[in-house]
Design a protein around this nucleic acid. Structure first.
Lengths: 206, 206
DNA sequence: GTCTATACTCTGATAGAC
DNA sequence: GTCTATCAGAGTATAGAC
């Protein structure tokens, strides 16, 4: 995708990705021009082209970084405990933090996958599935251990829960009415009461 | 926005909007060309231009129709009952149906507002707020009547609930694993248990 | 109201000197 | 690695005949 393997120094690569992500988020992928990106990076279009042959390659590379960061985020958050309930709670908060803590790449990952076609789109769908499998594993563990009601479909639960979080990127404003902790707490309050079996309701306050 | 006020016959207008919506959904607003739209409508670009001066005007008009349809949908669904709990349940299902029953305009409304700038974007934000106020009214009624827990923030609840539904448009496939009824039932099962006060838990099975 | 033909701008991408 | 210069094509919008 880029001209060289392995990639150039991360500082250089990430400077471009960081800058491009900000522009893609503000103007959208299609409305952002390669000249804009180059200028914002203090590069001339030709120099940017040396790093990424095509505009789409920037988007793909950015999404790879974003998904890696997200997976790393929830992996790190869940390694602190063996309790499956606390793991889910921590992963929820981690996903919220990664998405809403001003990370433009994650935002772009969520809202610009429609700009990709063919092989690039397929790759990103595979990557997304890789991430969602982390969640599937956690939720199925909850169910197997009898912590959540048997009539809860864990697949639907995952889609609904992650959907609620992902959509937050459309309305959350840093420094606004709600903190990330409040948001996570509210969501968990609703979901935990919504899915846990009554006998475990006392465990929900973690 | 269009050349004439009031607009031409709805059949003609809606044919263009319907066709454009399908294209905007499939390729995205930016990647769809006016030539494509015209051809798909069996019009020549010049004739399409007679109806809509600019490509963006098509998008704005489409979004107006979509938001009207959505408001109409939940209004109609809630007029059947005075019970505030049943109203919310019905509105939830109505929102799901409008969004996922193959309505391209509603999809475009949700995912292409970023393509608008300036006054047009502001207008759409106002329209969205108008819709969300319907929800705010319903949820606050629930709370005032003591049906949902006092620690539930109705504003956050609305954002979380509608977010979960809106995101469904990214994964729902007609004829797939889940029916619209199953999806609505699952969501309501989680949310109702998550927010109702325990003494009203028996009312949740509506 | 509709059509043909075209103006004009900007796009992503490239070639090749340095 | 970087820069200048430029290409070919696509984009929206328009003018004016019918």
């Amino acid at each position: 995708m880029t001209r060289h393997e392995p990639l150039r120094a991360d500082t250089d690569r990430e400077r471009v990705l960081f800058t491009a992500a900000r522009l893609f988020r503000e103007y959208g992928f299609d409305k952002t021009t390669v000249r804009q990106i180059a200028e914002a990076c203090d590069l001339l279009p030709g120099s940017l082209h040396y790093r990424y042959r095509a505009k789409e390659d920037i988007l793909v590379d950015m999404m790879r970084v974003a998904i890696e960061k997200t997976i790393h985020g929830i992996t790190e958050a869940t390694t602190g405990t063996e309790d499956p309930l606390q793991q889910v709670r921590a992963a929820l908060q981690a996903h919220i933090e990664v998405l809403l803590s001003g990370d433009d790449m994650t935002y772009v990952l969520l809202f610009e996958w429609r700009s990709l076609r063919g092989a690039a789109r397929k790759e990103m769908i595979r990557e997304r599935d890789r991430y969602e499998r982390c969640w599937a594993t956690m939720l199925e563990a909850l169910k197997e251990q009898g912590l959540i009601r048997q009539d809860v479909d864990t697949h639907l639960l995952r889609l609904i829960g992650l959907g609620a979080i992902n959509w937050m990127a459309t309305w959350y404003k840093k420094g606004g009415k709600y903190s990330l902790e409040e948001i996570g707490e509210s969501l968990w309050s609703i979901i935990s009461r919504g899915i846990l079996v009554p006998t475990h309701a006392d465990m929900r306050k973690i």
